[in-house]
Amino acid sequence: MNNVYAVFKKEFRSYFNSPIAYIFITAFLVFSGWLFFRGFFLIGQATMRPFFSILPWEFLFFVPAVTMRLWAEEKKMGTMELLMTLPLKDGEIVIGKFLAAFLFLAITVLLTFTFPLTLYYLGKPDIGPILGGYIGALLMGAAYLSIGLFISGLTENQIVAFILSVFACFGLFIIGEPIVLTALPGWLAGFFSFLGLGAHFQSIGRGVIDSRDIIYYLSVIIFFLFLNTRFVESRKWR
């Protein structure tokens, strides 16, 4: 546990050691704020739904930017060798990195708290969907992060890691979208809609927290963290 915490601290701090963190947070807030308020005054409804419905698409580009360097940079700089020869278990490093990325993303997302505050100032929004939306956003974001972290471990090039992660998240997101589902035979459609990253987010976003949705996200996260650990270990296979 101490080791996870040490890795977590190192990784979390490294976001703020460079301008990455500040640029990222600013860009995310400006971008999501613009997209939200652009429609908000037109519709004139005190609801966060437009914000949450576009969030999966914003995450598609923002989350891989958080994870792309986590392994790729270690590999490129050679620090991987140093890190892996410290008395740390591979799993501890993976979890430490994941938690650091998660806290960073969570801070960024929660900094949008001014949006619901605006709603309260202007009207009487329903609190359930807003809370649910944020919980769902964090779970979905964490799932994207675990995918991005895993892909970062496959390459030493950050740009490659970024693009591949966008693609992988995009793929896992759209297989649950109606456009794809209608093109599939019925029995597959049900399966795919469960597998898609987006459907669960929408159902949590309604303010209904179903254990199936939470279990789904947790399984995605654990699955990719496990894969990541196995790939990091793979240098030791004989």
């Binding site: 101490n2 080791n3 040490a6 890795v7 601290k9 190192k10 701090r13 490294s14 050691n17 460079s18 700089m77 050679g78 620090t79 991987m80 060798e81 140093l82 020869t85 410290l86 008395p87 740390l88």
Partner: peptide, 30 residues
Amino acid sequence: REKIGYLPENTPLYNDMGVVDYLKFIAEVR
């Protein structure tokens, strides 16, 4: 790994970390 100290080839280090922060991290892991 607990018993050895290792300086890999080309001295890989985290460039964006402070020297003390880095040594603190290693001390913690150690």
